[in-house]
């Protein structure tokens, strides 16, 4: 079903190294119109490098990123990157101006209401809590009417409750607007709850280990669901393979 959707972004045989360290090698993945695509991988597997090269912040050494020039991209960074001398609303206007959207005050209003920040439009970032800043970072990405939003582990440093609420917010926006999302995470449960398509990146320079499709309605998903649970086990099996076996005799640990 999903395969018929249009590809809007494609990584083809991407390779990227830093000095001696090959971070990405033979990386192939597709992002489809209207989907939530998740890039799942443990720390150090090159997820952020995928994000940075797709965003044009870094160049690939080899391979290609294929996308239309007209494709409008937006970004949600791991740590909020807000201009501290601008208020919450001015931060949205700052990026909107680049696309002549600064007059869209209704859109801003909607996003502030949705994120529960409507009373903080005129607050400076230092006056907001960590969770509120991350919400602002999120709605900024949706304020530019992007075709594709990249999210680099946006929920990583948040508490359970904020994570849950933001996940709900992202799901709702995606469902209603049909916007395509490219979501990077190290958390298999998060990927299973959010994604239509999961790419598992395993270990540096190893390429995509597995592509997984999740067809179940997002609003009905629970991690205890047998179908999702089985996929979780599959993911964990891939991840476990990556962990080096302990190279000590367990008896020696008694010395500790």
């Amino acid at each position: 079903m999903t395969e018929k959707k249009a590809k809007i972004l494609e990584f083809e045989n991407a390779k990227k190294s830093y000095d001696q360290l090959t971070v990405l090698k033979n990386l192939n993945l597709n992002v489809y119109q209207g989907e939530i695509t998740c890039l799942l991988g443990p720390s150090g597997s090159g997820k952020t490098t995928v994000f940075r090269t797709a965003a044009g912040m870094e160049e690939l050494d080899e391979g290609e990123i294929i996308k239309k020039d007209s494709l409008r991209l937006a970004y949600v960074f791991q740590e909020p990157r807000l201009l501290p001398w601008k208020t919450a609303e001015e931060n949205l206007i700052f990026v909107q101006k680049n696309y002549n959207l600064e007059k869209e005050s209704k859109l801003r209003e909607l996003l502030f209401n949705l994120s529960g920040l409507s009373n903080f439009k005129n607050s400076y970032p230092h006056e907001l809590s960590g969770g509120m800043k991350q919400r602002l970072e999120l709605i900024r990405a949706f304020a530019v009417k992007a075709d594709l939003v990249f999210l680099d582990e946006p929920l990583k440093s948040l508490d359970m409750k904020t994570k849950y609420n933001l996940r709900k917010m992202i799901t709702l926006i995606q469902k209603e607007s049909g916007i395509s999302l490219f979501f990077i995470t190290h958390d298999p449960e998060e990927a299973l709850l959010l994604a239509d398509r999961i790419y598992i990146l395993a270990g540096e320079g190893s390429g995509i280990k597995k592509e997984m499709l999740i067809k179940k309605d997002r609003s009905q998903r629970k991690i205890s669901d047998p179908e999702l649970y089985q996929k979780l086990e599959e993911i964990m099996a891939i991840f476990t393979d990556l962990v080096a076996e302990f190279e000590v005799d367990q008896k020696d640990l008694k010395e500790l």
Binding site: G56, F77, R81, L83, W85, K86, V95, K97
Partner: peptide
């Protein structure tokens, strides 16, 4: 420089980056 990177990712023109990021910073 992270803020500049963010602005560039959102296709902000150079002049606006100087005026609205470098200068106030």
């Amino acid at each position: 420089t992270e803020l500049v990177e963010m602005a560039e990712a959102y296709s902000t023109p150079r002049l606006r980056i100087i005026k609205e990021i470098y200068f106030p910073a």
